[in-house]
């Protein structure tokens, strides 16, 4: 028996902005981890990564990151990936800033 495959998401940085993005099941690049496609099959993961790598005008450096299912969609496992969903810890900048803006606009 092979070891259980740790599910993955495809993530990269936006070419023009540099912001962290995630590949969704319907082939969009989302800025939100929980909207990513959670890929449970290794062969499918490689296909999705190939697909992402071909999108040279949209993203830079796509790779597969470990993830797990959560109540609102995929969640990161490693702390580095958790930081990438938020932004730095010394200022409310990056995604957490966008989130704060969105919530005050409501």
């Amino acid at each position: 028996m092979s070891r259980r495959y740790i599910p993955k998401v495809v993530t990269a940085n936006d070419l023009a902005m540099g912001d962290v993005v995630y590949l969704t099941a319907d082939d969009r690049w989302s800025r939100h981890h929980h909207e990513a496609e959670l890929i449970e099959d290794e062969a499918h993961a490689q296909l999705r990564l190939l697909n992402a790598s071909a999108q040279k005008l949209l993203v830079v450096g796509p790779y597969l990151a470990d993830a797990k299912a959560g109540p609102n969609g995929p969640e990161p496992i490693h702390f580095r990936e958790t930081f990438r969903t938020r932004g730095p810890s010394n200022y409310v900048h990056g995604k957490q800033q966008d989130a704060a803006r969105e919530s005050t606009n409501v």
Binding site: G18, V60, R84, G87
Partner: peptide, 13 residues
């Protein structure tokens, strides 16, 4: 870009 000091970091360039 690196020759001109431009890196891609975790959240941005």
């Amino acid at each position: 870009r690196l020759m001109n000091g431009l890196y891609l970091q975790l959240h941005a360039y």
